[in-house]
Amino acid sequence: MTARVGTVTLVGGGPGDPELLTIAAARALASADVVLYDRLAPHETLAELAPRAELIDVGKRPGHHPIAQEEIERLLVAHARGGADVVRLKGGDPFVFGRGGEELDACRNAGVPVRVIPGVTSAIAVPAAAGIPVTHRGVSRLFTVVSGHAPLSPAELEHLAGLGGTIVVLMGVSNLPSISAGLLRCGMAPDVPAAVIERGGSAAQRTTFADLSRLRETAERAGVRSPAVIVIGEVVRRALLGEAEARAVLADAVLRSGSGV
């Protein structure tokens, strides 16, 4: 009798809020035997989402990768070959800077059945949570998503500066100084608004605003830390407008309260 081969499901967990999991993702977790999860995936409620599964933390942190990518792929294949239905829970979408393509290839090469459940990418969801639309009629009709994990080349910076629209940088806090300086050097206007959104979608979400020319010093002064999403472009003014309106409403309420109205 041939032993059963399990399956691997690459699941996009969204930016971290469990309520942004898709129905398909929740179903896959509920029936999983093993879950390998990242630190940016919604892992705090995993015991409830995957009640029968063995939970394995394979999360990487900036400058600290306790489990190599090759080992993660080996674990996926080994557990599936042992008959388990395995979920690889990743932050955001598996195919947006998530090395999901490499894990897909590893499973296919090993003859393990594998499928992909897309997730809500933080490139769109985190700006939205801060009130920033990545596109807006009459303001921006395109957006570019960039990995800031490694410094951008002069050619990449020149291309971004001349492309227009909105720039969204993921994993870019450590390289924020070189990115902002490079864009300015390549001709981007210094008064272009920018925002850094930390821990997007969580109760600890915080947004730091600045013009591009002051983005580095403002972020340093605010003590910005990963995980964070950087947004550069005129669409950021939509969030600034929302904050100004909120402050105006609050000030009006205080004045009316003080006057006894």
Rank of each mutant, 00 (worst) to 15 (best):
V236M: 04
E73I: 13
A32S: 09
G148L: 11
T9H: 00
H43V: 11
P15H: 06
R88M: 06
H64G: 00
A251I: 14
H136K: 09
E19P: 10
P193G: 04
G111Y: 07
S153W: 11
R115L: 11
A47M: 10
V77Y: 00
A41N: 07
R141S: 12
I72P: 00
A253N: 05
F209G: 01
P190E: 12
G83V: 15
L20T: 14
P190L: 11
A181N: 11
P151A: 01
L157H: 02
V11Y: 06
V11M: 10
A248D: 06
P133E: 00
G59M: 04
L255F: 05
E158R: 14
G138C: 10
I132K: 00
R256T: 12
I230S: 03
A253D: 10
V254F: 12
L55G: 02
L10M: 11
S259F: 12
G260R: 09
R61F: 07
R108T: 13
H43R: 07
L212H: 03
L55D: 01
E217A: 14
I232Y: 02
L255S: 08
G200H: 06
L46E: 00
L152A: 03
F95P: 14
G138R: 08
G182F: 05
A239G: 02
G258H: 08
G100I: 13
I197N: 02
V126H: 09
V11H: 02
G119H: 04
C107V: 14
P66V: 15
A161H: 11
E245M: 15
R214L: 12
E71M: 14
V86K: 00
V192E: 00
V231T: 15
D38K: 08
G200S: 09
L142K: 08
H159D: 12
L163P: 00
V126W: 08
S259I: 14
L76F: 03
L212F: 09
G83E: 07
A80M: 11
A26Q: 13
E102C: 12
T9E: 06
A150G: 03
G258S: 13
A195W: 05
A130L: 03
P127Y: 06
P15K: 05
A84H: 05
A28D: 03
E217C: 07
F95Y: 15
E103T: 09
R225G: 04
E71G: 05
I124W: 03
S257A: 15
H64Y: 10
V145R: 01
I179P: 02
R216V: 15
G119N: 05
I117A: 05
T135S: 06
A244C: 13
S257D: 12
L157F: 09
L36I: 04
P118W: 04
D57L: 11
M188Y: 06
V224Y: 01
M1K: 07
D211M: 13
R206N: 04
G101Q: 07
E156N: 06
G182L: 06
D57G: 08
R74Y: 07
A78S: 13
T22C: 13
E217D: 15
